[in-house]
Design a protein around this nucleic acid. Structure first.
Lengths: 135, 135
DNA sequence: GTGGTTTAGTCAGCTAGCTGATCAATACCT
DNA sequence: AGGTATTGATCAGCTAGCTGACTAAACCAC
């Protein structure tokens, strides 16, 4: 495995960590994708397109993630009165509560690393470089 | 984004890199999951369970990935005569050819990094730690 | 050798990415 | 004001992870 190319190591590591998230989150009725949305809604209501852009995801994908969150009662969609094409998405009280509970989980889920700072720097560099081509 | 937790950075980076792979691979009739299999088949025929274990994936997932590869003619399944439960998976000539073409693509797909070695070390550490809980 | 357990593989159904196509509302332009 | 273009959201259909449930073959134990 130490001879795997970078990309394969990256996606394998991501999948394994994401798996640990699943176990921790489903007691809260949340998924990883949903948690990101709750996090992004911190500052206030946002349109779906705006949420998708920030999560680096297609609007179609965001639409379905919001379906789930809405079904679970963690989020509400309200038609924007000024622009009836847009849906303003807000956290419900239950959504805020779930988010606060989830905030503390990261430490349990992510394995402790010696060089965590270098990892973060490298990942940010990858995201920046790849986002440039795509967004 | 510089305040995102480690796990979110990791999965976002993985997704963006994987997206670059898609563009590069579909001209070869391959996907990222399929490429991993072709790579693992280098040393010779393997059972599906063995392939799944090495790819860190469930056998059900491997089964469907092999469906695709078989449909594209890149891989063949042969019932093992000694143990009729097992399928021995081998690369076809077309599969070997596709794999060799794909080998050179990594450089085009993965953005160049300053501290690539630290990244690899950290990812291996994550995979090892998370695999311990799961496999 | 018959019966229970393990193993290899598959099927069904879920989330979550993606693309391409479509619809309704708004914005723009003349 | 009317026609066209753009934008926000959704629908359909694909790959690829996952879990849970199932079948068939092999193994084992008595």
């Amino acid at each position: 495995m130490s001879q795997w190319p970078n990309g394969r190591l990256l996606s394998t590591a991501a999948r394994l960590v994401e798996h640990a998230w699943v176990d921790a989150l489903d007691s809260l009725g949340l998924t990883h994708a949903g948690l990101i949305v709750l996090h992004l809604l911190g500052p206030g209501a946002q349109s779906q397109t705006e949420l998708a852009r920030q999560a680096r995801v297609q609007t179609q994908t965001m639409s379905r993630t919001l379906d789930r969150l809405e079904r679970e009662g963690l989020v509400a969609r309200i038609r924007d009165e000024r622009d009836a094409r847009r849906h303003l998405v807000t956290r419900t009280d239950a959504g805020t509560a779930a988010w606060q509970q989830a905030r503390t989980l990261e430490a349990d889920v992510f394995p402790p690393l010696e060089n965590a700072e270098e990892l973060r720097a490298a990942l940010l560099q990858i995201i920046t470089a790849s986002s440039a081509k795509r967004w």
